[in-house]
């Protein structure tokens, strides 16, 4: 492979999108109201669409003639490089919305920065995805504010979700030699600058929602290295079932 660091980097973005899309898709037919059911599956489809373009690019970089389905469906758990946040269970509606909000607040400035990448395929995916992500963040922010500043129960559920998910947010900014290589080549943005924008969005929205940022600084990671939480295997068994049971099937 010519550019192993870039391949790894593209997989990370694609895997974050795919796994979160798969998680959101679990709400299909189970949303709290019809309108929100459709809103969540819309977001899921946006994310899965983003992952397809990225897997196509990753397959091109890998150069072994695979297609996006083979990368999405036929890898082993430790070959997926998504962060732990996106594989966490849906929980209640507050948990799902807060997970999505933390992710969207990262993805928007991330894509805005990635649009400047000299790697044409990355810049193109970022330019297409940035509009989708802007809407996702708007939608989840509205919900965080309404739940936090809503009833006692909605406030408490939103705060519980924040307290639980906060430990996974640090991994959004995980960097290793892959990032250092690509940043040195000027191909990808430094995540430290994006962290500042993320924290500003999170602080503003949670403050308007009368919700508190947790004071503990537990930091869970491992996903970027292929070490996942116990939930990942169950997601993959759902996700991969058809391709494993009926290899090469298409419809």
């Amino acid at each position: 492979m010519q550019q192993p660091a870039l391949f790894e980097y593209v997989l990370r973005i694609a895997d974050d999108s795919l796994i979160l899309g798969q998680r959101l898709g679990e709400w299909c037919g189970h949303g709290p109201i019809l309108e929100e059911d459709i809103a969540m599956t819309n977001i899921a489809l946006d994310l899965i669409g983003q992952s397809i373009s990225l897997y196509d690019f990753a397959a091109e970089l890998e150069g072994t003639g695979k297609n996006h389905d083979q990368l999405a469906y036929l890898r082993y758990e430790n070959e997926y490089k998504n962060i732990l946040l996106v594989e966490q269970p849906n929980g209640d509606f507050a948990m799902t919305i807060l997970r999505q909000f933390f992710f969207d607040a990262f993805r928007l400035p991330f894509y805005e920065a990635l649009m400047q990448s000299p790697v044409a395929q990355l810049a193109a995916v970022a330019a297409k995805s940035v509009k989708e992500t802007r809407y996702h963040l708007k939608h989840t922010s509205e919900w965080v504010i309404r739940m936090g500043d809503g009833t006692d129960e909605s406030h408490q559920r939103a705060q519980s979700a924040i307290d639980h998910l906060w430990r996974y947010t640090n991994e959004l900014f995980y960097e290793n030699e892959v990032d250092q290589t690509l940043q040195a080549e000027g191909k990808v943005p430094a995540l430290s600058a994006i962290r500042t924008q993320w924290l500003s969005t999170v602080t503003n929205v949670l403050s308007e929602a009368t919700l508190q940022i947790p004071t503990n600084d537990w930091k869970f990671d491992g996903g970027r290295e292929g070490r996942h939480s116990e939930h990942m295997g169950y997601i993959l068994s759902d996700l991969q079932y058809m391709q494993r049971a009926y290899p090469n099937m298409e419809w």
């Binding site: 929100e36 809103a39 819309n42 509205e142």
Partner: peptide, 17 residues
């Protein structure tokens, strides 16, 4: 038509639906 708690979310739901 659709249901929504307020005008902002009604617009977002309308967009999605």
């Amino acid at each position: 038509s659709l249901r929504a708690p307020d005008a902002t979310l009604a617009l977002e739901n309308a967009r999605d639906v």
